[in-house]
Amino acid sequence: MVDIPEHLLIRSAEARAKALGITVDQALAEMKGEAEPTVISKEPDVQVIDETPAPAAETPAPAAETPAPAAETPAPATTKKETPEEVEFAPEVKVTQRLLTVVKAKPIQKPVSEPVDKVNTWPHLMLPEFVSLMAMTAFLILLSAILQAPLLEEANPNVTPNPAKAPWYFLGLQELLSYWDPQIAGVMIPLLLGVVLWMAFPYIDRNPETHPSKRKFAIMFYTFFLAGAGILTIIGVLFRGPGWNWTYPWIDGIWFDDLLDWIHFE
C-alpha cells in the first residue's frame, strides 16, 4: 500500500467520521484495518437532484430537505429559484468522499530544455557575418589580382610530364600510392577510411561529452589524422620530383605546376 502521509490520513478520517457519525479515532482505526468497519446505517448527506420536483428517490434519502435545483435542463420554471453555486455534472450519482489514492507532489510536465541565453540574429549575427563575407571578397579579389592562375601548354596526351601530379588535395593519396599497392592506397583507404569511417564517426563515438578534456581519444585521433594528411600532402606537393623521387624544394625547385606562377611571381 502506498505510504499515506499522516495529515492526509487524519483529514480523510475526519471526513469519514463526519459522514458516518462516529469518532475520528474510530474512523482512523477502521481505515487502518484495526477495527471492524462501521456498517453504514444511513445514507450520507447528499443532495438528490431530480428533474421532477421533490420525488421520493429510489433510496430513502433523508437529506433531501431542499427541493433539488434543476441545473442543466431548462425545466419549466416552477421550482427554479436561483442558479446554484455549484453545478453538479452528474446529479444522479450520490457523492461520497473517500481517499482513493495519494498523488505525490511532482510536476506533471518534465522540462526537456533549459532556457538558453539568446540574442537577436539581426544585428548580432548578421553584422559579423556580413563583415566576414566582405573580408573574404576583398581577400579573393586581391589574391586574384596578384596571382595568375596557371595555364601551361595545350593538353597533349603524347607528352607525359614528369612528375604528373594530381590536384593538391589528392597529393596525400598519390604519396600513399608510392608506398602501398594501388588497390589499398588508392581505393580502399580513401573509400573505407575517408568515406565510410568518416560518415560513421558520430555513430561510433558514443561519448556524449563535448568538452575537449573529456574526449581526449577523439581529439587525438583527429589531430593525428590531420597531421598525417597534412604531412603526406606537403611531401607530395613540395618534396617529390621526377620519377616521384625525393627532392628538396630549396635545392631542386618545386615540381608542382599549380604553384608555378606563385614562385615566378615578380
Binding site: L151, A155, T160, A164, K165, F170
Partner: peptide, 13 residues
C-alpha cells in the same frame, strides 16, 4: 582549362 596541368592531373586521378 585543357592544358598539360589539367589533363595529367585528371589522368592520375
Amino acid at each position: 582549362p585543357w592544358d598539360q596541368l589539367a589533363i595529367w592531373a585528371v589522368t592520375v586521378g
